[in-house]
Design a protein around this nucleic acid. Structure first.
Length: 266
DNA sequence: GCAAAATGTCAAG
DNA sequence: TTGACCTTTTGCA
């Protein structure tokens, strides 16, 4: 389940495995018209926040993909495997197969539609040219909580529920503070930490936020059970804070579950 | 075997 | 604010 780091990771994977190769495209599920790009050359990927664009052919047609809550790519070596009936988009060259399942969006878009999508998104911490002040100026005058603002893709794009919880913990910010109550230094710290964490996560598509020394031996031993993903507060309701041992709290904000440490994030 | 939850977003009420 | 949507995984019978 994807935040911005996964999108960037999948973009990089597609670039490294399929770029400038002729690809066969199908939609076993039938909900994407694969004939529009089947047999064309894959030209590469672009991303912003949680939005991925795959470019094909001489006239550079773009397929807009948003993974939503459940969408995922499975990348396989070879091309012999049978696709699942739920596979929306299968891309293959001589060596690799990419199967996309359960995206919220997977469709051909034109330049105007792309501009509309991009215009709605705040700066992406994964973009080296992002203008962080665009996010800062929205946060510093807002009466909404910083927890709300970080999840709002028009403020800052690419952060989801896991990174939100973890970034606020790492920077000792109470999630209910109004955006306008944050100092510029605090906002800059949140941005810098987002840049660091999302970049790190995008290398392999995994979220790493916790100082490894703070993870207990028992937890490390049970690594398979947790799929190797540790957190400070995300989904740790009732468990002791890794820093101060206070019980981690949870609440629902804007329909999403928020986790925080009442002591570290006063 | 089935219900519930899950890293997201949009539109209806 | 709630429900709908796309699918898989987990936990409880």
């Amino acid at each position: 389940m994807p935040e911005g780091h996964s999108i960037k990771h999948f973009a990089n994977v597609h670039d490294s495995l399929f770029k400038e190769t002729t690809v066969a495209v199908q939609s076993p599920q039938g909900r994407f018209d694969a004939s529009l790009i089947d047999g064309k050359v894959f030209r590469g990927s672009t991303t912003k926040g949680k939005h991925l664009f795959l470019w094909f052919g001489e006239d550079k047609q773009a397929v807009h993909i948003h993974l939503g809550l459940y969408g995922w790519f499975s990348i396989l070596r070879g091309q012999s495997s049978q696709p699942k009936t739920t596979t929306r988009l299968r891309i293959q060259n001589d060596e690799y197969t990419s199967d996309l399942t359960a995206p919220t969006v997977c469709k051909i878009v034109d330049e105007e539609q792309i501009m509309t999508i991009l215009a709605k998104l705040g700066p992406d911490p994964l973009d080296p040219h992002a203008i962080y002040e665009d996010a800062a100026s929205k946060i510093m005058f807002s009466k909404k909580s910083i927890a709300s603002l970080l999840m709002n893709q028009s403020v800052i794009s690419g952060i989801g529920n896991v990174y939100r919880a973890e970034i606020l913990f790492r920077n000792k910010i109470n999630p209910y503070r109004e955006g306008r109550s944050l100092s510029l230094a605090e906002i800059k710290e949140l941005w810098d930490d987002s840049v660091y964490l999302l970049n790190d996560g995008s290398t392999d598509g995994r979220i790493r936020t916790v100082n490894f020394e703070l993870i207990s031996e028992e937890e490390k031993a049970a690594v398979g059970k947790y799929n190797g993903q540790f957190s400070y507060v995300y989904k740790r309701t009732g468990q002791p804070c890794r820093v101060c041992h206070t019980s981690i709290a949870e609440d629902t904000v804007d329909g999403r579950t928020l986790y925080w440490c009442p002591e570290c994030q006063k």
